[in-house]
Write a protein that binds this DNA or RNA. Structure first.
Lengths: 197, 197
DNA sequence: CGTCATAATATGACCAGTCGTCTCATCTTG
DNA sequence: CAAGATGAGACGACTGGTCATATTATGACG
């Protein structure tokens, strides 16, 4: 197998890892299941990753990047202010959640709950991923403040932290209620309410 | 072993189940580990519980009850209004979290993330536990509204949902930041801010 | 340009251990 | 004596991880 294929293979493993860890969690997902469903021999896995734990830490980083990109894409839109772009971004996520029948939620939140204080490696990876996400949100919030869409008497970073944390909580609740209600309530309360001042 | 002892044994299994599921999650906890640490032979477990899944569903109910009792105890205090009692309750939890070195979080949140959409039995049990907790919070919030401590222009049930969901999110964040900051931010923003109107 | 020794990588059978579940002969108790 | 509790262990499947072997890529040399 050539080196180029090898890179694609690693990508495939990470992609599949996102899906499996989302569906079944860390301990619920076996390496055998992972490699078989990708078509990689079991032993080969360890050519690409040190361990299941190290693999999962990479999966976390692999998972969050597209969300940051999508958020950034909304913030780049010329037809929307930053406040409206944030709302558009979360509306997008809510719609997606509904399409997926309220399954999954956020891989970061799920893994934090399951192994957030038992795996140092994953804890670090999870913290860094959350911080990158938070920083992108802060960017949008700060611009919304300058544009007059959001209140100015709060630190943008603090607001971004509220947003991230509350969103995680709303996603958990969504999973057991099987309803978008917690998510829309989140938007109404923060983006359309508290943050407007 | 007499019937009375048997009842104590079941209680012991549930208590230990709370601790183990909290530390290691559902798939991370083995029945063998559970029964050995309680001193029950492995086979006996199935006299008390149908399956690991049914056991976990019972653990969930067993877990939440003390929290509801503690919240109720604060609400019964004659020296505090309902708003202050709620704040006192969460302050108590925050202090406890710090003592435990930011470990664990909330069993409900952790299990929702891990198996909230793969185990129907547990999903139901989790939803019911959250609802009981939410209803007790609503009780306090409604009284705080009547006493003039909280804003009146919002439904108490909706406010209780916000409280529960946001608290779960803050607990997740606390775990990876290893700091009470997300929890105090939660109190400041909701109890001392948004809810006062 | 072709050859080939060597280095790098891929492979999958295999390890020791654990999983959740269930059985059943034996023992305890009302 | 009947009914339930016990406890040792069987069950097949699976766990994360290893390693000797097989395959492939490499680059100096003829």
């Amino acid at each position: 197998m050539s080196r180029r294929d090898a890179k694609e293979l690693k990508e495939k493993l990470l992609d599949r890892g996102v899906a499996l860890l989302m569906e079944q969690g860390y301990h619920g997902t076996g390496l055998q299941e992972l490699v078989q469903s990708v078509g990689v021999p079991k032993g080969s896995f360890y050519n690409y990753f040190e361990s299941k734990e190290a693999f999962s830490a990479e999966v976390v980083a692999h998972y969050i990047e597209p969300f940051i990109k999508r958020l950034d894409a909304q913030l780049q839109r010329k037809d929307l202010g930053a406040a409206a772009a944030l709302r558009a971004y979360f509306d997008e996520l809510i719609e997606e959640t509904e399409r997926l029948d309220f399954r999954g939620g956020c891989l970061l939140g799920n893994l934090i709950g399951e192994i957030g204080d038992t795996s140092d490696l994953c804890q670090t990876s999870l913290r860094e991923a959350v911080h990158r996400y938070r920083d992108k949100l802060r960017e949008g919030i700060a611009r919304a403040q300058r544009e007059g869409g959001f209140r100015m008497d709060m630190d943008a970073k603090e607001m971004a932290d509220l947003l991230v944390n509350f969103w995680q909580g709303a996603l958990l609740r969504m999973k057991i209620e099987r309803s978008v209600r917690p998510l829309t309530q989140f938007c109404d309360m923060l983006l359309n309410g508290y943050f407007k001042g």
